[in-house]
Design a protein around this nucleic acid. Structure first.
Lengths: 210, 210
DNA sequence: AACTGTGAAGTTTTTCACAGCC
DNA sequence: GGCTGTGAAAAACTTCACAGTT
């Protein structure tokens, strides 16, 4: 459970808030100005009450009898999530997956940018991918400290990922996005998010198999 | 909530089961033969009761006073998840991310294989990536039907992903793994899993920002 | 003695249902 | 009339606590 000055809410609320934001951005781009919680509900497979309650933990953003302004909601949700400030992200592991992330579109709209990449492979050092230079991983701590980077995406094979995570934590990184299929052993104060394609496919297979 | 012949349990249980399986595989590879729920708990940040209860929905796999055999657990969990059979997967969108997935290691150990890839870009047709041929997307339905493929991974830019999803569903695919930051509109009977790096990074930023 | 399996209790999360406002 | 915001009720999920087994 997470508490702010107003009340307490589920971590699921935060997950959904990121989805709401995506959706309001798209609606705004499509020149939709007002939507009701009922319409949101149909678009996102979330009940209208859930949507309204999720927002209620942070304020009153809708107009009774009317709905929610997409422009207002984009601003408010960005504020709630902290996306109105700029964030820089480091990448460790410039393999196929890692470099595809460096080339991912849309981060700039998000106020989020990869500003440094690292690999242990000498052949990659000095390469520039989508304006991001690949450094030797031995310089990780120095560069992270200097640029005050707080978030690191790790795209390392599972065999080596724990030692990289140790280094990353030692360098002062506070949040990690891990693509390897393993639960990283890091101090509690570090926020870790796992993106594990194996686990997701296994889960789909379970449902198919029933 | 999900029910089997024994009882009912949370969808979270299935997510955790995939993590348990990963972990038991690794322990087995490292020649660990027996582990207790307490040890699992420390490795995976799951309470020992949670672990035991998750398993209890499917049977009794441990030995009282002893613990769980890694070999037994790998077999049992694979059985529960349906991973003891072979599964074939299609990929739509052979861009940077898509081709990095085709090259992902470890799928063979999983009884899961990409057997067909599709793209609309003519330059990619006929290419072979890690033994998988890239076809013209216009042949999607024909090939999916013929090979009886049930799972599709979609790596398409967000602007086009809904129309691709429509085609995928029309072709008889039953489960979709979607990498685009959008909630796909598909019939209820289709299982969809989203892997959204933007959403994950936004979530991390929320926690950092507090 | 050590560890599992599980009803019962406790906590968290979602849904209901309705008052309040446009 | 239509839609939001929210306490109260319901449902879902986790933890407790202990009986049962090796």
């Amino acid at each position: 459970m997470i508490c702010n000055d107003k009340s307490c809410f589920s971590p699921e609320t935060i997950k959904r808030l990121t989805v709401y934001l995506q959706n309001f951005k798209r609606l705004k781009k499509n020149n939709v100005e007002i939507v009701s919680s009922g319409e949101i509900s149909k678009l996102l497979n979330v009940s209208p009450e859930q949507f309204r309650k999720d927002l209620s933990y942070f304020g009153e953003f809708g107009k009774r009898g009317v709905g929610y302004s997409t422009t207002t909601m984009v601003d408010e949700l960005e504020g709630i999530l902290g996306l109105d400030k700029k964030w820089t992200v480091a990448l460790v592991g410039v393999g196929k997956l890692g470099s595809s992330l460096l080339n991912y579109p849309g981060f700039s709209e998000l106020n989020v940018k990869f500003t440094a990449a690292f690999d242990s492979d000498k052949k990659k050092h000095g390469k520039i991918i989508n304006n991001v230079e690949v450094h030797d991983v031995i310089h990780f701590k120095k560069i992270i400290k200097k640029r005050k980077i707080k978030i690191c995406v790790i795209c390392i094979p599972v065999e080596n990922v724990q030692e990289v995570a140790d280094m990353v934590v030692d360098s002062g990184i506070q949040a990690i996005l891990n693509f390897a299929p393993i639960v990283l052993n890091v101090p509690e104060k570090i926020y870790v998010s796992n993106m594990d394609i194996y686990s997701e496919i296994e889960r789909l297979i379970y449902y198919l198999n029933k």
